[in-house]
Computed example of a mutant assay.
Amino acid sequence: MGRRTPVIDSAAFEIRLARDAADLVASQRLRYRVFVEELGGGGETVDHQNRLESDRLDSIYDHLLLVDPARAEGEHVVGAYRLLPSDRLERAGQFYCDSEYDLSPLVGTGRKLLELGRSCVDPDYRGGAAMLLLWNALADYVLAHDIEILFGVASFHGTDAEKLKAPLSWLHHHHLAPAHMRPRARPEAFQPMDLVPEAALDRRAALAEMPNLIKAYLRLGGFVGEGAFIDYPFNTTDVLLLMDTKAMSDKHRSFYTRRFEGRA
């Protein structure tokens, strides 16, 4: 028997920022289930004894949560995003992505930034409207904080770039961010993405191998930074995604709206 995908009635779920320690711990427990138990991640952010994935930045970030009130306390968070607006950067000391990408071109734009990270949905809630409900709340957050550019790393499972050469090459040839704002992967784990000549790429095959989250950002007009970053502790190959909210076309906005209204 496969997992049951609940029919998500938006009226029966809460979408809000974490408001206390219990919410934060439940979010960290969800991250452990997804990033460690499901995807095989590890490293210093993992607490196996308490089944938590956390780091020192958690107390500074906002945590956008999809909550199922019907679930037991501690397991009530079924979707999460971690958010850091750039006006909180001095307090944090760095963006999480700073450890993987040189963000100076992006920060140098002087525009209001929002870093997105640790995006995850409980396996039992995938395939429905969970991610779209989170995105709808994220849109409200962006408007409330006057955000101009969203960015964050998104991951391919595994660290063998040869197996990912088609989607990585497609991103490099078709979705590089403008040069003046383009972050570049840190040299210690830099992985070139131009692994297949553009003329040799099969669009359908490349997109079929791409995670749904990355494809969703691309549909909204997203870009990627230069190079991928191999995150061996987390068993992922990361790309940096950027989205300029001011440049998002009416076509992309209407696509997002239709997708949400059609699924909620």
Rank of each mutant, 00 (worst) to 15 (best):
G225Q: 05
L132G: 15
F151Y: 05
R126F: 07
L220P: 05
F229E: 04
V153W: 00
P123G: 10
L168W: 07
A144M: 08
Y217V: 05
E209M: 15
L207R: 14
M181Q: 12
I230W: 02
V196D: 06
G152Q: 02
D122A: 14
G110T: 12
R186C: 11
F151N: 03
F190H: 15
F151V: 05
G221R: 06
K112S: 15
A137H: 09
G110Q: 09
S119K: 05
I149N: 02
A166P: 00
R111P: 05
A199N: 11
A166R: 09
G152W: 06
S119C: 12
G221I: 03
R118L: 02
A166T: 04
H180S: 07
H145T: 01
E198N: 14
A166M: 11
T109S: 15
R126K: 07
G128E: 09
A130F: 06
Y141A: 02
V142R: 05
R219F: 02
R186G: 04
L171N: 01
K215Q: 09
M181K: 08
R118H: 08
R203E: 15
S155N: 13
W135T: 01
L213F: 06
D140F: 01
R186A: 15
E209L: 15
L220F: 12
S104T: 14
R184D: 00
Y141I: 01
A177S: 11
R182I: 01
K163G: 07
L171F: 03
V224I: 15
G222D: 13
R203G: 00
L176E: 13
R219A: 11
D140P: 00
G127H: 03
V224P: 11
L164S: 06
R182A: 03
N136D: 14
E209H: 13
P192G: 10
L132T: 11
A205Y: 06
S169W: 05
N212R: 14
L134D: 04
G127P: 04
A200R: 11
L176K: 11
A144K: 09
F190R: 14
H174F: 13
V107I: 15
D122R: 09
K112D: 07
E226G: 00
S119I: 07
L114S: 02
P178T: 03
F229V: 03
G117V: 08
L138V: 07
H157C: 06
A216N: 10
I147E: 07
R203S: 13
L114C: 11
G225D: 08
H157W: 03
I230G: 02
H180D: 12
E115K: 11
G222V: 13
L176G: 09
R182V: 03
L143Q: 10
G127Y: 01
D140T: 06
D146F: 04
F223K: 05
V224C: 04
A179L: 14
L114G: 01
A179R: 10
A139E: 10
D122K: 04
S155E: 09
G225R: 03
L220E: 10
L133P: 03
L195K: 04
A144C: 01
K165A: 13
E226V: 00
D140L: 07
H172D: 03
L106T: 10
A154K: 00
A185F: 11
D231F: 08
Q191R: 09
L207H: 10
